Each structure stands twice: as structure tokens, then as C-alpha cells.
Computed example of a mutant assay.
Amino acid sequence: MGVSSWRILDGEDPDFAMSTRVRQRAWVSQLRPLIAEFSRPGDTVFDPFAGWGSTLVAAAVEGRHGIGLEISEERVTEARERLAAYPDQTMLCGDARKPPVPDESVDLVLCDLPYFGTSPEGASADDGTFYALEEYDNYLYALDEAFAQVSRVLRPGAHAVVCVQNRRVAGRFVPLAWDTARVLSRYLVLGDERIHLYKKAASGGDPTVTNRAHEYLVVGRKPLDGE
């Protein structure tokens, strides 16, 4: 992406598309340029909300070692099957607030957040699922705990890129992307905004409601020692 603040996404590369029964949270074709820009071959890329492993597929294609963490055992199993074709990738089952990753061992954190207000059937906050947190303040508190761990595992000078949209939940606007940046800024130095644009039909006639055909990339950098 370089110094451009936005990029138009045309869709997933067919070589990396998953089955239609699974809705990918992120495209490999969306993640590869970010990995190439913010890390180097041989680096370690960590996704604390790894889902079905798209970040790890992108890491493998770009010559990086990927570590993915996902709370759902079912998704971890499916991700590991998917990743069997890609070397040097590690998929773990666990809570993003307690990642079993050593201090300052990660060169890039790249993730798509589990969005508030989109709880899948059967999800429970008791098992650590962010989706299932019904109170927004509780969700942001959990996000704060996860970002503290992001800072812990990042080496000084390394970046985190968090992909996130603002939301509408029960008809009300929820500034999730902007609150995500605010929480992340407690731990990392924020960069300028970046935006991914999607081709999507326009919404209705209410001027306060858009089709949200864009996603923010919240970029932060861990300060160097003594900075």
C-alpha cells in the first residue's frame, strides 16, 4: 500500500478462497500486501483472532512464520486442515487475552477483530468468546486486555495492524473502529488511518446511514526502548 491511505479490494484470489459454507472474515489477497509492507521474509506474524487461518495462509505465501490463536476449537480444527498445505504455520486454541507467545517475539500483529454485536449461535462469553459479550463496555475492556498482550509480544519497533469496521447494532451506530484505535493507543503509537474499500451496493435513502463499504486499518507501532 505504501503511502496511499486507501486501497480498493476486488475480491479473494480463487486460489485461496474457502468453501461457501464458511464466511471468511478476511481475504488472503487483502492481507498479503500488509504482510509484505510491515514485515520481512522470515519474520513472525501473529494473529490473536485467527478464525480459519487466512492470516497464516498469507504469511506462508509471503515467506513468514505465522502463529494464529483462536478461541473456537471447531475453527482451529478446520484451520489446521486448511494450513496442512502451508509450511511453518502454527495454529493454537486459546484466549487472545492469554496468548502463549513469548515476550517481544513477534514482528507483526495482523488481525480482523471479532465484531461486537455479531455473536454466532451457541457462543458464550464464559468461554472467552468476544462475540458473545453483550455489553459494549465489557467488550472494550476485553479488547484492552487483548491489546495489552499485543504490546507484550511485539518486539520494540514492530507494528500491529487491526482491521475493523464501525457497526450498526439493533439500529444504533457503534463506533467500533474509532474506539478500537482509542484503546490501541494506550499501548502503541498510532499511525495515520488507512482504509480498505469494497464494491458494495448503496444503502437506502437515510442520509445518516451508509452501506459501510469500507474497513479501517488501525496501525500502531510499539515504541523503541527509551523512546
Rank of each mutant, 00 (worst) to 15 (best):
A148D: 11
L140C: 05
A125P: 10
R168A: 01
Q149C: 11
D126M: 04
K98A: 15
P33Y: 03
I8S: 04
R212S: 08
F16N: 02
V150A: 09
S119P: 01
L217M: 12
G53Y: 03
S203Q: 04
E78L: 15
R40P: 00
S119D: 07
F49T: 11
A58G: 11
E193H: 12
D112R: 14
V22R: 14
Y198N: 07
A79P: 08
P14F: 01
G204S: 13
R212C: 01
A181L: 07
L143K: 03
G51H: 08
L34Y: 05
R167L: 13
L113A: 02
D10W: 08
T208Q: 10
A60G: 15
E121V: 08
Q89C: 06
S4I: 08
C93I: 06
L133G: 01
V28K: 05
L108E: 08
S54W: 00
V162H: 10
V189A: 12
R80Q: 15
F147N: 07
T20Q: 11
G226R: 07
H214P: 02
S5N: 10
N138R: 08
E145C: 14
L92F: 11
E215R: 07
R221T: 15
P14Y: 01
W27P: 00
S151T: 03
F116V: 01
V183C: 03
V209G: 00
G66I: 10
R32V: 14
D192L: 13
W52G: 01
R97F: 03
T44Q: 13
A79S: 12
W178H: 14
A79Q: 08
I35V: 15
T20R: 14
P156R: 06
A148V: 02
Y131A: 14
D112W: 07
S124Q: 11
G42M: 08
V219M: 05
E193D: 12
V162P: 11
G122Q: 09
R172L: 04
A84P: 00
A26I: 06
K200F: 04
G11V: 06
R80P: 02
L140H: 03
I71A: 06
E134G: 01
A125G: 10
P120D: 05
R7L: 13
F46M: 11
T208M: 10
G42R: 06
P87F: 09
V219D: 02
S151G: 15
C163P: 00
G2F: 12
D47C: 08
R221K: 15
V169G: 02
A142L: 00
L217A: 04
C163F: 08
Q24M: 10
A213H: 07
G66P: 12
V189G: 04
Y216I: 00
V219W: 04
W6N: 09
S105V: 11
L133N: 01
T180A: 06
G122E: 09
E70C: 06
L110T: 13
F130R: 03
P156T: 02
S119L: 02
L217G: 06
